[in-house]
Nucleic acid binder design. Sequence first.
DNA 1: AGCCAGGAGAATG
DNA 2: CATTCTCATGGC
Length: 339
Amino acid sequence: MTARLPLTGPLDLAATLDSGQAFRWRPQVPTSSGQGGGWWRGVLGSNAVRLRVPTRRDGERLYLEVESSPEPEDDLLPHLVRYLDLERDIDGVHHALAMHPYLQRAIASFSGLRILRQEPWECTVSFLLSPQSNIPRIRRNVEALAQAAGEPIETRDSPVYGFPSPEALADLGEARLRQLGLGFRAKAVAAVASKVATGELDLAALQSLPFSESEAALQALPGVGPKVAHCILAFSLDKGEGFPVDRWVRRGVLREFFQGRKTNDKVITAWARETFGPLSGYAQQLIFHWERSQALEERPLPGSRAFQGRTGPARAQSVERSSSKTRSITRLMMEMAWP
DNA sequence: AGCCAGGAGAATG
DNA sequence: CATTCTCATGGC
């Protein structure tokens, strides 16, 4: 099954799918002849899918291919539209945030950066894995969970697994979760899985609560502090006030908005909510991506795939200098690799 | 090799 | 209440 969806605004799949919101998307490696490039493979519900946004003059379109069988339910498209939040007026959001010169710079590089609306359970587990970890490792951990306890999904080539149900993860237990490489995070994953499996906790119900109540309910869970709670709020519960503060965001905010004075994260979070309101999550993503890309530019890590260019304006900027137009990283990379 | 990681939670001062 | 230590392991 394939589909084409019209886009009303920019969509940068690389920035949106591959830098820390979700952890199961992989770029499809193009063949030596350049075929298959630009696709992103992932799992949506019980479907193995791939996505692509080719460059077009008459406006961009999103291409979807379902690589698994049986055929998907006919509500897959609505689910995809919701997952990528395609009906969001991202240009409008960015226009509002561009009143801050610092954010304006980030917007110029990441105009198609979206905030996903993930399934709350998968998002919660993903960020339970995040404390004192790093994105490559979180990816590995999530994938290990899927292989150990997820439902197999039929495809033509390598087997794919759905994200495990709460019951499946609860049944694994802390010890087995540790064996999968989660480290001390296994305890929290096991505990929260058990709460959801027994019905004691209804994550989806938190979406209909006011922001602060939803935030408090999440932080009452084992392994969920301010950072993890705000990731869940922003990336799966559609709470625009969510503003996860990690070291990148902290660095950017203190330098650009606090004159370099250091303050604690509680102050930063409150400031963000006052300053950006329901657009806090978008501001946070722009800051996060911009700060990481800047760090990458300073220390390019020769040979790293990041340097060879999917995300990060380090490489893109050098191209943009010779091209007067500002384009999204995704489109830029496509033009470079597949003219 | 050795430092550090999209933190949380308990232990201190 | 603010700061410090511990947790488990792997990426670079």
